[in-house]
Structures are given as C-alpha cells and as structure tokens.
Design a protein around this nucleic acid. Sequence first.
DNA 1: GACAATGCATAGGAATCCTATACGAATGAT
DNA 2: ATCATTCGTATAGGATTCCTATGCATTGTC
Lengths: 221, 221
Amino acid sequence: MIAVSIEPGSTPPLVDRIGDGLSRVATAMRSEAWTAAEAIGLNPTQLQILTFLVARGRSGMRVKQIAAYLGVSQPTTTDSVNALLRKGLVEKQADPSDARALSVAATPQGETAVRQAGQLASATEDAIAALSKLEQQDLLTHLVKIIRRLQTAGAIPEQRMCVNCRYFRPNVYDDAKAPHHCAFVDAAFGPAELRVDCGEFEGADAAERDAAWRVFNRGAV
Amino acid sequence: MIAVSIEPGSTPPLVDRIGDGLSRVATAMRSEAWTAAEAIGLNPTQLQILTFLVARGRSGMRVKQIAAYLGVSQPTTTDSVNALLRKGLVEKQADPSDARALSVAATPQGETAVRQAGQLASATEDAIAALSKLEQQDLLTHLVKIIRRLQTAGAIPEQRMCVNCRYFRPNVYDDAKAPHHCAFVDAAFGPAELRVDCGEFEGADAAERDAAWRVFNRGAV
DNA sequence: GACAATGCATAGGAATCCTATACGAATGAT
DNA sequence: ATCATTCGTATAGGATTCCTATGCATTGTC
C-alpha cells in the first residue's frame, strides 16, 4: 500500500506522491479497460488474459503463469479462463511434458477480438503520446527500472524484458540513440526501443543478468 | 485499452510499451493493496475509499465524488461505503446545503486504520525509492503531465494538483531546484515537491489554469 | 406549478476474487 | 520400488465488487 500523508500542511514524501500519481493513471486505465472489453463482450479481466495469451502466441500458457501475470489467485484465473473457453476465445490443451498441466492458448477468434479492442480510442494512450519523445523514453526507462525491482522483490513474476534477456548487450556502442545491441535480431537499438514484453525473449541466468544490468544502469545497482 | 502488438518480430509503438509498463506496475500495486487492506480487515476498494476520505478531512465527500475518484459507478460506491459504515470506519451526514446529498467522512477509527495500512512494507514504494532523486523527480513530472491530459480529456475528475491550483506560480524564480512558488504557504518549491493531491488545493479558473500550464510546461501545450 | 435534472438507494444478476480442499500426476527420499 | 511430499488444476462456498435499470426525494428551471 502506498502510504498517504494525512497531516494537514505537510508535503508527503516524493515516493508516495509518485505512487499516488501511478494510482491515478491506473484508475483511468481501469475504467478504460471496461469500455474496451465491453465492446467485444468481455470484462477487463477476461480481456487482460486474452491479450496476454495472444501476445504469447499459440504455444499456450499454464493457468498458474496466467495467475502470476495477473496477480490474482489460481482459482480466480480458472474462473475467467473458463468464461473465455465458453465464448470460444481460448482453448485448453494437455501439456505433453506434464500430464497435470494445461496449456491455454487463444483461438483465432480470440486474436480477432484482441485486435478489435486494441483499435479503440484510448485517453491513456493519447495522454502518453502527448509527451515528447524524449520524455516518453525517460518514462519507459524509469518504468523498466521499477519493474525490475518489483521482479527481484518477487512482487511480480519474471518479465520478458530486454534487461532480463540473454540476447541483450547493453551500452556496447557510443551512439547515444542506439547504444544497445540485440543479439537475436543482430541489430543496434536505443532506450526508446526497450521491450517490456518481447516475443523473442529468452531468460539469461542470474549472473549474466546482474552483469548486464550494471552495464545498462551505468554501474549502479 | 492499451493496444498490444501481436505481430511477431515487430517492436510495438513506444506509447504501447509505456502503457504495458504502467500496467505491470499497477498489477503489483493491486496485489499489494490486497495484503495491506486485509491487514486491517478490508478489501482494496474499501481501503482506497477510506484513504481518499481521510486525505480529504472531516468535511466529507459526496458519494458521486467518491465514485468519480474511483472510476466506478455510483451504486458500486454505495455498496462499499455501506460496508465501511457497518465497520464504523466512515459516517454519513446530511449535507446542509442539499437535502438529497450525503457527506461521507472518515471516523477517527477510520483514520487509525489508514495509518496502520500505510505503515506496511510496500514493494512498490521500495522500487520507486530505488530510483535516484532526479529520476523520481522526472517521473513525477511526467505523471503530472499525463494526469493533466487525462483530466482535460474527461477520463478522470479534476485533480487537486498544483498545476490546477490558484495558488500555483510556475517558473517565477531562476533557481532550477525551486523555480515555482506556492501563494498559499508563500514559499518557493521545485519539481520534486509538486503535489498530486493537495489538502490546501483551490481550483483556478480555466484561463488561469491554461496560462499557468503554458508557463510550467515552457510554452508547450 | 409543472417538469426536467440531480443525488442517492435499491433491485437483480453476473462476475471477480478469496480461502480451503480434493485429486491426480510428478518428484524425491528412503 | 514404495511412500510421502510437492505440484498443477478444479471445485466448493461465500463475500464483495460491479454493472444496468429503476425508484424516490429534492432541487432547479420555465
């Protein structure tokens, strides 16, 4: 919980005000998610699951992974997955490597639904787009740093971000606009191209990851 | 809804990746809110309402205002306010100026509960605190800009922020650390002290607000 | 004074979301 | 190899959120 200072006249700590600001933006995103989801006959949780599954492709995800991604319990996830199943937007397959496990994947209809929802107008997108390119780039960088911390603290699962990826080579070029290198696509890229959820992600081991992070973060931990 | 690119190999637009990052942080905040709220026998929505009421003081807020703040419907707010009422954490008072309206305010027990919840450890707070002071300051500034846009778009209600306040005098000093002035406390302050939800807030009219924003934002709209 | 608009409550119902538990499958220890 | 444990998921049960639609009282407007 983000603490809120309740003493009149005193300024709350900077960290709390940032948390408060994030909450306000999250509120807008949440109510926007309702309209977007309703446009395709879903609710926000179902759309979030479906979007997640579409982004992961046809290999499918396990129920537990979906639950971790959403930050809810496993039975809750089962509920919502079943709702999507009834609507024909996802399908369950047996996991060949583990007979206990399921592989939940989006159907073609599910992909279509996500495309439709993604094309709706979004006040949040507009608000972010109103920032300058440099501001957007800085904001993304700060978010990546926060997300990485949340991940190491165990508050969220491992993210498919560049800074966790074995193909990531931070700060190998002098060009400030594209100092990094992605060994998967074998191309230079910059802070504005950093990925938060990359389809080609492959996790690096802990030592590689820490080393890359130090280089990326210019030596700071 | 924040669109998510689903074509393999292509990098989603920067705006979408920022939206995605914000969602990830919001997920962590949401699941954190569960533990914090449960520690005092509430759920996240109830704690959010209670925190909001405590921040607003004993004058009380109307149901409709609470609903707008939360971004949910008015009946939903009535539900949760009644739950808090049964627990003795808020009280309803008749609004003297309008016999239809209610004034919902936190009780002393409610204030105590919010204090308790605010003192719990928070991975999100820690993650934000791990940023440098300058990064935090930039992040806050970007959030303020986004929130203002969301507000002018009608996605969220008027926020009690400096940039909306009649006491705000942006960029009146040369000192980069404290270029602004608050006419309420009659003191200089800087970007790191910008308020997102100020108790002493008083809304400026539209013309004042736009003028102040241009000065604050160095001429950009 | 008639009539629309506003503020809130209620009705009704669907869905989220939790904990606790059950069960089969996989894993590890002895 | 057997048995206990762990793991992945489903189910049971229940509280609450959250919606739309509607009703009722009050307020404002013509």
